[in-house]
Amino acid sequence: MSDVTPTEMMTVAASRALTSKDVCFVGIGAPSAACNVARLTHAPDITLIYESGTIGTAPDVLPLSIGDGELCETAVTTVAVPEMFRYWLQGGRITVGFLGAAQIDKFGNINTTVIGDYHQPKVRLPGGGGAPEIASSCGEIYITLKQAKRAMVEKIDFFTSFGHGEGGDHRQRLGITTKGPTLLITDLAIWKPDPETKEFTVVSLHPGVTRDMVQETCGWEVKFADNLETTPAPSTTELMTLRDLQERTKRAHEGGKAA
């Protein structure tokens, strides 16, 4: 399959990180696509949770928002939002939180709040939503985003959610007991935090991607693992599953009143 787009490679690579044993808190956008491809391929028993309170949902099309009706209709159960955050997230029942990001730094700290100063922002972004507590209460965090210099920056403008802070044992020093960001999947590479410094390091390049391409689209000096691997290309099943899902989604969302 030579016509795989970088975004498709990113989504498929992200889906592979999930297993049937996971209980996954799903962010909207790229994480949602990856989580549902996992569910439709190798991880049929994965529990997907959206912050609208839907637990164990299995939508036929990707939701436009975290509260689309189909998430509830296909869920094992739907709980109130306070219960979602108190019993299920804070209660420690979620193994993986899957987040997107507007801005990220090398330690997996995320900004989705403002570009510029908080009180006089250049761009006011939507804000954190569930992310601040997802980042600290889930067993571990996977992050997915497309590489760009303005997205992967040396210093983020606002800590919407905390990753590894200044690196090293910063999480432990704040009394956070969960692992934090353990995986970063971009459209070019797979990154994992260094065991000591916690700086994200490229461990695998997607097919056809060079080190230069990764560096040119990243705002900090990229570290590469010694035994750098190549990400296996998407299988026919993975790619067909993703494309079918997106085709169904496009049809459903454009429908509106005309449907």
Partner: peptide, 13 residues
């Protein structure tokens, strides 16, 4: 009362 905002910047603003 809840377990939240750890390491986040919102409490500063």
């Amino acid at each position: 009362i809840f377990r939240g905002y750890k390491g986040a910047d919102l409490p500063k603003v």
